[in-house]
Write a protein that binds this DNA or RNA. Structure first.
Lengths: 120, 120
DNA sequence: GGTATATGTAGATTTCCGTCTACATGTTGA
DNA sequence: TCAACATGTAGACGGAAATCTACATATACC
């Protein structure tokens, strides 16, 4: 337990659990470390944070149905300012969920190829 | 466009886009409605919101590796108070991502069977 | 029954993040 | 070149959510 920051009360609690139920918590620090140190943990978290907004999930669901959307179409769909659209799409792009392509004045967005998160 | 709340400037913008690039936006309201009215939209959003927290993602990643975790083990792993653990696990349970089982004084959590979201 | 213990709930506080306005940058056409 | 237009960036603001302390409820044991 040296790797986990727990007080004495919690330590006693874990020991009682072990005696009561026979659950061995010696692997707990390793379990935590395995889960958290995975290089994909940060990437998973970033992707989930990006998708966990109603407006952004709506855009992704629409992109799943339509090849591309222009920024102004996204704006019309979401009912927010262009600045907010830009902010949201920047978040999705940074998380690797969408890709953008500029054609003259117009910016088009599409789903990234490697999006493995289920969409409604 | 009658179903979307857009001002005249945005309407002109969409028309210019149509003339410039030949993108037909007549299907946009339907696209929005299809995406948003899906009964799974709300469920997807709730699940993504539940998973998009670092502490909660860590718990799920740990549960993916270990059959069950006791509340006190979760507390030791996260380094927060028991009340915060209870709050977080309540969120995961409400989203259908974990199930809980009480054995005497102890509460054990495990991944729900139908979790289809990739975990690190 | 009373006490100790584990965890759920409520409310206050702190932190995080969506949204806007204003400004900045890039593209187009006269 | 300049003006119009599309969209990216910065900072302020307000609401949502994580976190804590305190209280409440349930279980176990003497």
């Amino acid at each position: 337990m040296a790797d986990l920051d727990i007080d004495q009360a919690l330590e006693r609690r874990l020991e009682t659990l072990d005696e009561d139920v026979g659950t061995c918590c010696e692997d707990l620090p390793r379990l935590v470390e395995d889960a958290r140190s995975s290089s994909s943990f940060t990437e998973h978290l970033e992707r989930y944070r990006a998708i966990a907004d109603e407006k952004r999930l709506l855009v992704l669901a629409m992109l799943a149905r339509s090849k591309t959307l222009c920024a102004c179409e996204v704006q019309a769909a979401l009912g927010v300012t262009h600045a907010t659209v830009s902010h949201h799409m920047g978040t999705l792009r940074a998380a690797g969920l969408v890709e953008s392509e500029k054609r003259g004045k117009w910016v088009f967005y599409r789903l990234s190829d490697d999006v493995n998160l289920p969409l409604p």
